[in-house]
Amino acid sequence: MQKSIVVITGGPGFGKTSLIHRLKELNYRVGDEYAQEIIQDQLEHGGDCLPWKNGKAFRELIFQKRLAFWSSVVDEELAFADRGIPDQLAFARYQGKAKLSCLIKNSRSYSYFPYVFITSPWKEIYLQNQVRSETFEQACEIHEWICKTYLDLGYQLVHLPKIDVEQRVNFIINYITKLRS
């Protein structure tokens, strides 16, 4: 089943979350970037549901949060997601995980809007921090896996221009408006 949830994705640190925050300010329904939330919470509370400590539990918790958001959006409602379920498949491919059948099944079972907006590598805005530990080069490699995964699943990629947040949001809204009219 396909929903009108527009995925904004790309490598870590390329501006997705800033766009989601702005869309939320504009009163759009949004699904947050759950990985950062979980990592931050686990670090603050001494938990072990972290990708480098208990990857399986971490992946399952992210999936449950993404699925809950996906399920909460009614069929024709326009919503936006900071990453989608296929991102988990892309990250697993990047990490060289062998058991992907469940991730492939989930990625096909829970479909999004057919156009996915991609934040391309942008070194000038990239920052490493306690939650985002990847180097810029690693973020670029993850980005390639994300693009390949969405393409493999039949999505159309729309690469966002490297412009400020407000202009990027306007670009997305205008693009979707034209597609839906």
Rank of each mutant, 00 (worst) to 15 (best):
R108H: 13
Q95S: 12
D48P: 03
I118H: 03
F63W: 06
Y155K: 02
R93M: 13
F117L: 01
G84L: 04
Q128F: 12
A81H: 02
S72N: 07
C147E: 10
L67K: 15
C140A: 11
Y110R: 04
S111V: 09
I85P: 01
E76A: 08
V74M: 11
W52F: 05
K97L: 15
Q95C: 10
A98Y: 09
E76K: 14
L103E: 06
V158Q: 03
L100P: 08
F136N: 07
S133Y: 11
E124I: 09
P51L: 05
Y150I: 01
F63D: 02
V74Q: 14
K99N: 15
P121K: 06
T149C: 09
Q95F: 11
R66Q: 15
H143N: 13
K99C: 12
S109K: 15
C49N: 11
L50H: 00
Q156Y: 13
T119G: 00
F80C: 00
P121G: 02
S72P: 03
A92P: 05
I146N: 06
R66M: 15
R93A: 01
Y126C: 07
K123C: 09
H143Y: 02
G96H: 09
C140L: 08
K99M: 13
A68I: 06
Y115V: 13
I118F: 01
Y150M: 00
I125D: 02
K148I: 07
S71G: 09
S107A: 10
K148T: 09
